[in-house]
Design a protein around this nucleic acid. Structure first.
Length: 836
RNA sequence: GCCGAUGUGGCGGAAUGGUAGACGCAACGGACUUAAAAUCCGUUGGGCCGUAACAGGCCCGUGCCGGUUCGAGUCCGGCCAUCGGCACCA
């Protein structure tokens, strides 16, 4: 699903190699892939573990199956959206065609790597049988509102107000949006990076348009709080927290000296109220029209026009300095009743807080810059604890020049003045979030149409019985460039009835991927988006999250992962799913760089094609190398030499059990015998079982492979190879390199009858801690923390024995001769440190 | 600017506060071979002393500076560098 790991691209045709293969992976890999396919071996009919991802998840899936779990390990295609459509436009074909081809290509590649997906559960977000339910979920969102009392979504029928359209979780608004002329569509804030589109890197401009929005901001508090109990990397949680951006403070009302208008400002520092020497409104603030003094109108109008033309990117450019215009109006500071000027300036954003701020130049960098530029008064009201200059001090200190809170710490002063304001009805405690509502419509062809019609300028939902709403076939599906969606070109389709027309926007790329993990539980259900039973079956347990393991890159931290949480919570509130969160455990997979340590890209020509790697070294080597490279979550460069090393390891495994006969055919080695492993072999085997088991559990796949290499090295060049040890070892190897493990297992079965059946039917090996115990152990002797000698000691030696043995050691005696031993530290089974 | 992650040999990387460099790559030497490839065996952090050559010995070493500790790659404080996120959010 998605490009959650590394997406390889086929560029070069496969290279043929006449070089003799070190072992016949080119024969055994297709053989076992066909067997797994035919027997539908990885079908998951019962509850248990579930996961999603690529090599790492395949290892976990195969491992968990061997531990007796039923594993849901599915794969699907998130094929709507900009990338798919851009690709289609470039190749001059219909996106339906390119999507089909790409899915086939990618699926073939996945099978070739030997992934054990349950293909019975394959889904495709562009399939009407799938997006019918995407549209259905949209209807649930549209027909709900967020009840602030219960803090959850409820059916719109429970809303008591007069205008339900104003509280729906899906609503239409005229908002300044990110319009990308090149792509011919609007984009969500999250899809705009440095003033350019994330897809394609085209310029984005601000432009007001009528758009569908989803009220994700209603969930800001829950999205933040409920992050707590998830097993996600702290870094990702932090990214989401920052994106949601909660800040605590107060809303304060300023009266305007003429007329009855009031301006409400949000501040996190109500304790600096006495230092407020001016107000600033965002240029777009609706009150501007009502308060501007006659003589200031021309300047204000000019400034507002100039601001409107600026892109978000230009506006955010700090290097250009502050701009602004005086409105000619004054407000009254409620703390000291001083008359302060009201300005407009584009450093105040209309979308955050109340779109207005109280300027406290002494204790806010931006206000200070503004005040200096326009010569506004600066009043110190916070005294820093140390000798720092008070002007420009933005930290916490002691309130001064503020009669009702003088002498209080900033923390106390905030409480005090907020209470004071509340008593007088001049303000109240308030919490603000940076998170904005989700811009949900796109002017594109390749997406889910909205199940919405328009009549007399009002929107209505279509009935569930009319789903799916299938887009009309369009030969020219390219964006119109005017902002009118391509679907508008299909006049027949648009005309719903004599009175009503269809909504022609489509949903964004993220819609389908917001809930696919639910569909995997019950992919063929045509009565419900997921069967009640199936959902409970797979997604219930003690923790708040649904999916047990989700492997993906950091790039989805604030997009996919936030959107999916939002949708899931709506479905949870409405009683459709049993848990409040979609993903319990999230593991980040780092990106793989090219051999030049650069991000893989066509232009750099450093793309690694798995088909080439598999042609040369086999799928098992490919899988194993990916895992051997380093820690899963780390960014790391690809190395062809490294692949060779891992391929050599697999060839050694092969030759451990197989020899070439006179005719050049591989046959089971005569060294493999039905004998008991000796003590050292036993210890090696059980140490390996222990390490590999623990390392898989902790996602340390690289060290698991190291241990298997150590095991194989230990068995190289021995005369007799106990078959039982090899059985266990193949079990450990199986999740990593299932083809060679299956084949060698089968070869053993041809001669030995100790363990019938395929390796996939085997239980994971169990280690015996007793076999790991050493009789003798090497003890390190240090003097002042420096290594001086080692000695063999019995495992059970007492501390006294260890100490006297160390002190009587000749080398140590030489060194401590003539010195006083101050202290001896004995760490049993480890070391002795003599302090002189 | 703010927040976060990372920093260990020629390279990818190992190390519950207790033998730094496991395992792999590369390099070098040897065995096998007419030869090469493949394979197998061995050496491989740096510096110095020592020896005919071995043997052996010493010192330094985990980005930099300090601290805690009997003992620090690991913990604490301060810096530097790289990467990622946010960026006039009041």
């Amino acid at each position: 699903m998605h490009d959650r790991i590394l997406v390889f691209e086929s560029l070069r045709s496969s290279m043929s190699s006449d070089r003799r293969k070190p072992y016949p992976f080119d024969q055994i890999e297709p053989k076992w892939q066909a067997i797994w396919d035919e027997r539908q071996l990885f079908h998951a009919p019962n509850p248990g573990e579930k996961g999603e991802g690529y090599t790492a998840t395949d290892i976990v899936a195969r491992y968990k199956r061997m531990r007796g779990f039923n594993v849901l390990h599915p794969m699907g295609w998130d094929a709507f959206g900009l990338p798919a459509e851009q690709y289609a436009i470039k190749s001059g074909q219909h996106p339906a065609v390119t999507t089909r081809e790409n899915v086939a290509k990618f699926k073939r590649q996945l099978k070739r790597i030997g992934f054990s997906y349950d293909w019975q559960r394959e889904i495709n977000t562009t399939d009407p049988r799938y997006y019918k339910w995407t549209q259905w979920i949209f209807l649930q969102i549209y027909n709900s509102w967020f009840n602030p009392q219960t803090k959850q979504a409820e059916p719109i029928s429970t809303y008591g107000g007069t205008d339900p359209d104003s509280v729906r979780l899906a609503y239409v608004a005229d908002v300044p949006v990110n319009w990308c002329p090149e792509l011919g569509t609007v984009l969500a804030n999250e899809e705009v990076v440095d003033g350019k589109s994330e897809v394609g890197g085209f310029p984005v401009v601000r432009r007001p348009m009528r758009q569908w929005m989803l009220r994700i901001t209603a969930y800001a508090e829950r999205l933040l709080d409920e992050l707590e109990k998830l097993d996600w990397p702290e870094g990702i949680k932090l990214l989401q927290r920052n994106w949601i951006g909660r800040s605590e403070g107060a809303e304060i009302d300023f009266k305007i000296d003429k007329g009855d208008h009031e301006i409400c400002v949000f501040t996190t520092r109500p304790d600096t109220l006495y230092g407020g020497t001016f107000l600033v409104l965002a240029p777009e603030h609706s009150l501007v029209d009502l308060i501007v003094a006659e003589e200031q109108w021309p300047a204000i109008r000019e400034y507002r026009e100039r601001t409107a033309r600026k892109s978000e990117f230009e506006r955010a450019d700090l290097s250009k300095g502050k701009t602004g215009v005086f409105t000619g109006a004054y407000a009254i500071n409620p703390a000291n009743n001083e008359r302060i000027p009201i300005w407009i300036a584009d450093y105040v954003l209309v979308g955050y807080g109340t779109g207005a701020i109280g300027g406290v130049p002494a204790h806010d960098e931006r206000d200070l810059e503004f005040a200096k530029k326009f010569d506004l008064p600066i009043v110190v009201v916070v005294q820093p604890a140390d000798d720092k200059p008070a002007i420009g001090f933005t930290g916490e200190g002691i309130a001064v020049n503020s009669p009702i809170i003088d002498g209080l710490t900033s923390v106390e002063a905030k409480k005090q003045i907020t209470a004071w304001l509340e008593e007088r009805g001049l303000g109240k405690r308030a919490i603000n979030y940076k998170l904005r509502d989700w811009l949900f419509s796109r002017q594109r062809y390749w997406g889910e149409p909205f199940p919405i019609i328009w009549e007399n300028g009002k929107h209505h939902s279509l009935g569930e019985n009319e789903l799916p709403i299938v887009p009309p076939p369009l030969d020219d599906y390219k964006p119109t460039g005017t902002g009118e969606p391509p679907l508008a070109k299909a006049k027949e389709w648009v005309r719903y009835s004599n009175k009503a027309v269809r909504e022609t926007n489509t949903m964004p790329q993220w819609a389908g991927s917001c809930w696919y993990y639910l569909r995997f539980c019950d992919p063929h259900n045509d009565q419900r988006f997921v069967g009640k039973e199936a959902e409970r079956y797979w997604m219930s347990g003690p923790k708040p999250g649904s999916v047990d393991l989700y492997v993906g890159g950091t790039e989805h931290a604030v997009l996919h992962l936030l959107y999916a949480r939002f949708w899931h919570k709506v479905l949870f509130d409405l009683g459709y799913v049993s848990k409040p969160e979609p993903f319990q455990r999230l593991v980040n997979q780092g990106i793989i760089l090219g051999e030049d340590n650069q991000k893989m890209s066509k232009s750099r020509g450093n793309i690694v094609n798995p088909d080439d790697v598999i042609d040369q070294h086999g799928a098992d080597a490919f899988r194993c190398y990916e895992m051997f490279m380093g820690p899963l979550e780390q960014m790391k460069p690809w190395s062809m030499r490294g692949v060779e090393g891992v391929a050599r390891f697999l060839a050694r495994v092969w030759r451990l059990l197989m020899t070439e006969n006179q005719a050049g055919a591989w046959e089971l080695s005569g060294k493999v015998k039905n004998v008991e492993p000796d003590k050292a072999q036993q210890k090696m085997l059980h140490a390996t079982i222990k390490k590999v088991t623990q390392d898989i559990e902790s996602f340390s796949f690289n060290t698991a492979i190291s241990q298997m290499m150590i095991f194989v090295n230990a068995f190289t060049n021995v005369d007799t190879i106990p078959v039982s040890a090899m059985r266990s070892f193949l079990g450990l190897l199986n999740p990593f390199s299932p083809h060679i493990a299956s084949e060698l297992w089968e070869k053993l079965n041809a001669k030995f009858s100790d363990a019938p059946g395929d390796i996939t039917e085997q239980r994971w090996p169990i280690y015996d801690e007793r076999l790991l115990v050493e009789d003798e152990i090497e003890i390190v002797i240090q003097i002042n923390g420096k290594l001086r000698d080692r000695m063999k000691m019995p495992m059970l030696a007492t501390e006294e024995e260890l100490e006297s043995a160390a002190l009587s050691n000749p080398k140590i005696q030489d060194r401590i001769a003539g010195k006083t031993v101050r202290k001896v530290i004995v760490v049993p089974k480890k070391l002795i440190n003599i302090v002189v």
